[in-house]
């Protein structure tokens, strides 16, 4: 399974209400459930006129199929290469030294 970041351009995304976001979530869950293959929606972030979603799936095509079924745009789908954060600072430092 691979992890993807999906950028969805939605004008006025930041103005979406909690009810609207709930509706989108339920559509997304139904779309994921209908795929008949392993699929995991991890988390989504609303920022400006975009949604940034983190999904786990077998491949990019499955991510796009999920978007089609949900009626969502998927302007850019990028596989996550790796992640890091404050908690990884030490290990990196050690590795450099």
């Amino acid at each position: 399974m691979r992890r993807f970041i999906i950028e969805r351009e939605i004008e006025g995304a930041s103005e979406l209400t909690q009810e609207q976001l709930a509706g989108i979530a339920s559509t997304s869950n139904a779309a994921a459930a209908s795929l008949g293959v392993p699929y995991h929606w991890v988390q989504s972030y609303v920022a400006g006129d975009k949604l940034y979603c983190v999904h786990v799936a077998e491949d990019e095509e499955t991510v796009r199929e999920h978007a089609r079924r949900g009626g969502f745009p998927a302007n850019r789908v990028t596989e996550v290469a790796t992640d890091f954060g404050p908690h990884t600072a030490t290990s990196v430092a050690v590795a450099v030294r």
């Binding site: 139904a30 209908s34 008949g36 499955t62 089609r68 079924r69």
Partner: peptide
């Protein structure tokens, strides 16, 4: 419409099998 596929119970493996017929397109 792609969005009715969940309601119709058409999953991704089915679409992949049908792709082999070469009859369908998106």
């Amino acid at each position: 419409d792609d969005r009715v596929l969940p309601a119709l119970g058409v999953d991704l493996p089915t679409l992949r099998r049908l792709e082999a017929t070469g009859l369908l397109d998106r």
